[in-house]
Design a protein around this nucleic acid. Structure first.
Lengths: 353, 353
DNA sequence: TTGTATGCGTTATCAC
DNA sequence: GTGATAACGCATACAA
């Protein structure tokens, strides 16, 4: 990386054409004789030319224009995600850029596809969307991509052919990880596990449940509680289940509505081992107070960072940098990140080893 | 972020001076009348001018020149770290940059300070070093910093006043996290924990041990085994301890030499719960095969990424972007990153939810 | 179809 | 002390 990279002028000279012609070839603008085209392409290959994106951006005073489409509502996780975005806004890209966050009612494919259809491809360099895997949504996404706007999915995916990338965790792995933690807590005794999810139809919840079952082995898996991601429902159904099944040794909540779960647990003098998803204010407090044992998180800060990085690479027509996969992260009481929201998760500048 | 940022020309005009004078003020080149200086500074503040680093780099055809100093030797962790660097090299910075990795014998402060002293400050934009907390090293670092070269510590720190940043985990937190996992595996029975470390004098190992003891509570902590980070020693000492103390229920290895630990365990028909540090080839295999239960890792890929980002911000004389703290990551069998070294830890592009 | 010239925001050089 | 101005590598308007 120490030798000077060839510039497009070098390429043009090498090919024996003018700068503008080389530019036409490299940027696929057309109106180039077949012969010139071939010569320029040969020179590009010969010299190993790679476009200097910084210079290109400078020359255009470029502003990256991205849109993120999140589900709207009171869901603590996406609320947190929006906070993260706002907190990081200034830092996400050194270049000038304009990131617009729009919301669309949760779990509504029709409205989501409308929202997507309402985006003007000419005003956009990329879209990230928390997808709903439904045909209308796929179509709306294809329309954008057909118009030259890269689309990546975030947290919730479409099929791999229908987007330019996915940033999020693999939910079956999350479920398997939860099961592994449960097994670790039952090395010398059998487990009786109560699974709680939002709805059987939610694909991510289903995947988590499947992963759980795979790894749980001989341990007992009770019937699923469906909490609709609503704290009140989760609370009453869980209280009821705990009363009826005193033999429960572990709870795995794979959806939202965990404020209700925490309330249901808070009264009792003994409790089973508890694992739930997503580090948000109330789950953090519960973990710190010892009301629950494990939080499986998908690191929204990291997801946002990777989302923007990917959108940028796509906008630059550059092969996306391979980012480390986002894996389900295991939090216990002691390895929690510093709390100040997303704003200051700086490493504690204390006297570390 | 949508309005055009003011340029230095704007500032100059606003201040009623020439572009060159504004530049002299902003870049502290001297030879400016006090009056002009004041006016320019006022204009900078008034307009909120911030230097366009991309343009600056373009004008200089800048190459960032960084050096990373790692301990040399056969240690699997740092070997892996070097692999990570090589695998990521092309991706670490979009700008032209020259990253030189030099090594210095492990645990030798004198040689490390010599290595640092051998670096030419005029040829460097930043240094990252796996530090040894000794006065000679501090002095060598100060010399570099005094010569205008930012220095950050990596994995192993100096005092907070002696470097421009630290990228790594807090080791007391790592120890606490291990203890929490041990407690989780002993919800219904008392734990008898065998701690293994390299040397009592290694600060990071000591911090881990202290964190462990803090969180372990009433559970039993046996005497420490010192394995000198050498597999052979670890193997014999551990085998001996297991024979003498059949009541051991958990092992926490906070240093290196774990290949020996794995060998010692491999023969036995039953084994205690095992936690150790750093995801490297042999520990990964052991986890996949069920010979150990938990790996606490510090995500070298992430550390490298943050190291370069921080060095770059420092080289650009720009306030370092707040990166999420690197926390001890808990790996169990199921949430392991894909194996292909650092090269392809892409998210599996399969059909995730 | 092809080529030339200008500007993007800096840094650095040179003249005043 | 101060002020023009030529690069840097690219995109683009314009000329041929």
């Amino acid at each position: 990386m120490v030798n000077r990279q060839p510039t497009l002028s070098d390429v043009a000279r090498h090919a024996g054409v003018s700068y503008a012609t080389a530019d036409r070839v490299v940027n696929r603008r057309g109106n180039v004789a077949a012969k010139s085209l071939a010569r320029v392409e040969a020179s590009v290959a010969a010299l190993g030319y790679v476009r200097n994106v910084a210079a290109a951006n400078l020359s255009q005073s470029r502003t990256y224009r991205f849109v993120m489409v999140l589900p709207e509502g009171t869901n603590a996780f996406f609320g947190h995600m929006r906070d993260v975005i706002e907190a990081q806004r200034e830092r996400l890209l050194p270049e000038r850029f304009d990131l617009q966050v729009v919301t669309s009612p949760a779990f509504d494919p029709a409205l989501l596809s409308e929202t997507l259809a309402g985006l003007d491809p000419d005003m956009l360099d990329g879209v990230a969307v928390v997808a709903i895997d439904a045909s209308e949504v796929v179509e709306a996404v294809q329309r954008l991509r057909g118009a030259g706007v890269p689309v990546i999915t975030l947290v919730s995916d479409l099929g791999p052919d229908h987007r330019d990338g996915y940033i999020g965790i693999a939910n079956d792995i999350a479920g398997r990880t939860a099961a592994r933690m449960i097994r670790l807590a039952h090395l010398t005794r059998p487990a009786v596990v109560l699974p709680i999810l939002g709805a059987r139809t939610a694909r991510d919840h289903g995947d988590r449940l499947a992963g759980l079952a795979e790894v749980l082995g001989d341990h007992t898996l009770l019937d699923v509680i469906e909490g609709q991601d609503r704290p009140d429902l989760v609370e009453t159904k869980l209280s009821d289940a705990l009363d009826r099944h005193p033999e429960i040794t572990a709870i795995y909540s794979m959806g939202a509505g965990n404020a209700g779960l925490i309330r249901a647990l808070d009264g009792r003098e003994t409790r089973p081992m508890v694992i739930l998803h997503e580090l948000v204010p109330h789950s953090r407090i519960a973990l710190e107070q010892g009301l629950i044992d494990v939080i499986i998180d998908q690191r929204p800060e990291e997801e946002i960072r990777q989302t923007v990085a990917r959108l940028r690479d796509l906008a630059d027509r550059r092969p996306p940098a391979p980012e480390p996969a986002i894996l389900p992260t295991i939090y216990v009481k002691d390895n929690l990140p510093p709390p100040h929201g997303a704003a200051s998760d700086m490493p504690p500048e204390g006297d570390h080893p």
